[in-house]
Design a protein around this nucleic acid. Structure first.
Length: 664
RNA sequence: GCCGCGUUAGCUCAGUGGUAGAGCGUCCGCCUUGUAAGCGGAAUGUCGAGAGUUCGACUCUCUCACGCGGCUCCA
């Protein structure tokens, strides 16, 4: 037995050690039960290893603790294995798909004759607990393609993955968890008496044993296409989550519960903002008076800001003959997303899915001079898109919506500064609505699918470069999104984080050299020649409906006063003070404030409760003391109160909060 | 579009092969002076729609609509 030199690194402390050959990684971290794997670091990067990894001379070994990002992935991946074992115990005919860790959890796909029902998940979870209790060891075994094909003959999906080895990243999202470009490995789950209870083709690494799973829960089952392709068979996917402690699991479940409380579909009903009448059809919302206030205030403000930023407000119809959409490229490239045509008077009319064709027609309604550029057209254009029935979701995915759509027609030289101008405008606007944490996403063409995109390689390259450069200058993070471009050009989207850290795609900016060609748009340049403008599409909220949905969730229904449907709820301590408050309310209304007096025959306490549930920003309460002093008392949504505020001051205070668009 | 699960009063939800209930809300009456539910009474449903099985369907079967969770998609 000889000695080797290694470096052990844990919790930021590095130390060189001399150990004997045959020493396993776990021996370096035996005193810390939170260490679940080892990270081997060398000049070329880092690679994760099981704790059973046998050290070699010169290894630099870092501890991977369970509550780190890698630790979570390993925990969840191992938990997915336990899930698969439990499923195959209970449903022996189940064939294995893939089972990777995902954000906040894991899943495993199975081909089963009968889809899982909720009761099945309970049974599977019980079985998983038994497996965890058995403390099975995850045991890594190197194999060859030939041996694996024989050993896994009963697992057709695994066989398919072995065939795809080396291109696993293309095989399916998550498939790289099963096979990689290197050697092929199988993990055996070994019971206490040494028997192999279960096995799976897998790269690893894994926890040392099943008992190292501290807390997990199965969440739901759903269908998923094999390898993510809708042409393939649907497998049954079971989602679960796993955490380093019961407390962490509970905290995660609490976060989900908080998100549910904010669900705009629920709050929309509770606060009487909007609804989705079955009679109208799926994905077609109606706004009630209170939701209508939010919508109108938003639209008024956005319209005003556009005009301040040099846009001209235009208006266009909802339908058009098909020729328009041929020119724009929508029918050749996007017909599936449009509603079928209405045929009359010998022509096909389509509901518009985009406003740009109409704006192009405004542009070319007369000759244009370079002196007019940038020409910026803007409207709230109602567009209709045929969204597949399964994707419709509240206000965030609908079939009919108002797009705050603008098109800037510019010379190619003006494009970079116009894009910068739009980015600054958009970020400012989103901040006005209380969103202030952003990153950018650059969606580019998928070169492997040229038929999905129109235009020359050179034009795409130019457009992409211009957009990317403008993004870099904002200093915001820029995330690539290959293949996500529109058919007519690359796109930048602004992603905003909401109050509980979820990101939403908001605005988009697109650089389009194709539609000006299609519509033969020209302007006369200073040298007298005719030139083609570039058009830059931008939508600040994307969809007004969707943005309202996002705001409802961001604010959890507790809107800042300038957006709140009711800004002030006046509550008399007793009937006798109603008239006094009506008087105050009249004065507030002359200043444009939205105020209601609750003169129902509920008791004051009940009225406060009602106003609280409606999330009204200012409660204005008055009793004998206030009347005598010519004052009112405030109560805020957080229960805070301020008594004896003179009426004039109270009105000024509310008006100031509204004018400043601040939250209270 | 695909897979699964749902749809009972305005809302949240019980319930049974023999045509239905609670709480909140609504309406009426009484009461009501200080910061999250005063008391009493009443009304409210083609049990999502249609077809089938059955002596009988809200309950079982099928089709459709709508919703929910995913998948695919999202110019």
């Amino acid at each position: 037995m000889s000695e080797i030199q290694i470096v052990r690194s844990h919790a930021g402390e590095r130390e060189e050690r001399t150990v004997t050959t045959g020493t396993k990684a776990w021996e370096l971290f035996a005193e810390d039960a939170d260490v679940v794997a080892a990270r081997l670091v060398d000049a070329s990067g880092a690679v994760l290893k099981d704790l059973s990894y046998e050290l070699v001379d010169g290894d630099v070994v870092e501890a991977v603790v369970i509550d780190s990002a890698d630790g979570h992935d390993i925990l969840r991946h191992s938990c997915a294995h336990v899930l698969a074992q439990a499923v195959q115990d209970l449903f022996p005919e189940a064939k294995l798909g893939i089972g990777p860790p995902i954000e906040n959890g894991f899943y495993y796909d199975f081909d089963v004759p009968t889809p899982f029902v909720p009761e099945d998940l309970d049974k599977i979870e019980t079985r998983m607990r038994k497996i965890i209790k058995e403390n099975q060891r995850f045991s890594r075994r190197v194999t060859t393609d030939e041996d694996a094909l024989v050993e896994l003959a009963d697992e057709p999906y695994k066989i398919e993955l072995i065939g795809l080895k080396g291109s696993a990243a293309d095989a399916a999202e998550g498939a790289s968890a099963e096979v990689g470009a290197g050697e092929l490995t199988i993990y055996d789950n070994v019971g206490r008496s040494g028997e192999v209870a279960w096995k799976d083709l897998c790269r690893g690494p894994h926890l040392p044993t099943t008992k190292r799973i501290p807390a997990f829960k199965l969440m739901r089952s759903a269908a998923a296409y094999w390898r993510g392709d809708e042409k393939n068979k649907q497998l049954q996917r079971i989602y679960g989550t796993a955490w380093e402690s019961k407390e962490a699991l509970d905290a995660y479940l609490d976060r989900i519960a908080e998100a549910e409380k904010r669900d705009h579909r629920k709050l929309g009903r509770d606060l009487d903002l909007f609804s989705f009448p079955d009679e109208i059809g799926s994905g077609l919302p109606v706004f009630h008076p209170r939701g209508g206030v939010i919508k109108r205030v938003m639209e008024d403000y956005v319209r005003q800001r556009h005009i301040e930023e040099g846009f001209e407000y235009v208006g266009t119809p909802h339908i058009s003959k098909e020729q328009t959409f041929h020119l724009s490229g929508h029918l050749p490239y996007y017909a599936d997303g449009m509603f079928p045509p209405m045929e009359f008077e010998g022509a096909n009319y389509y509901l518009k899915a985009m406003n740009c064709p109409m704006h192009n027609l405004i542009f070319r309604s007369r000759g244009r001079s370079y002196r007019e550029l940038p020409l910026r057209l803007f409207e709230f254009g109602h567009v209709y898109r045929y969204e597949k029935s399964g994707v419709i979701h509240g206000l965030t995915r609908v079939r009919g919506f108002a797009q705050d759509d603008s098109h800037s027609y510019v010379t190619p030289e003006q494009a970079p500064s116009e894009i910068k101008h739009l980015l600054a405008f958009i970020l400012g606007l989103l901040r006005d609505f209380g969103l202030d944490d952003f990153y950018l996403e650059l969606s580019t063409r998928d070169d492997s699918k040229p038929d999905k995109f129109v235009g020359s390689d050179e034009d795409w390259a130019t457009a992409t470069t211009v957009l990317e450069q403008a993004c870099r200058e904002t200093g915001l993070d820029l995330v690539p999104d290959p293949g996500g471009a529109a058919f007519y050009g690359p796109k930048v989207s602004i992603q905003a984080k909401d109050a509980i850290g979820r990101t939403w795609q908001m605005s988009t900016i697109q650089y389009d050299f194709n539609q000006p060609k299609g519509f033969d748009l020209t302007y006369q340049a200073s040298d007298g020649t005719r030139q083609q403008p570039v058009m830059i599409h931008s939508a600040k909220f994307g969809s007004i409906e969707r943005f309202i949905g996002v705001l409802v969730e961001h604010y959890a229904g507790a809107f800042p006063p300038w957006l709140a449907p009711v800004q002030v709820q006046a509550i008399p301590v007793a009937d006798a003070f109603s008239e006094y408050l009506h008087d105050v309310a009249r004065r507030m209304k002359t200043q444009g404030l939205r105020v209601e007096v609750d003169d129902s025959d509920d008791r004051m306490q009940k009225k406060i409760r009602n106003a609280q549930l409606q999330k009204v920003p200012f409660m204005l309460i008055a009793g004998a003391d206030d009347v005598e002093a010519g004052a009112v008392s405030f109560r805020y949504r957080d229960g805070r109160q301020e008594n004896g505020i003179p009426v004039d001051e109270a009105i000024a205070r509310v008006a100031a909060a509204v004018a400043a668009r601040e939250q209270v």
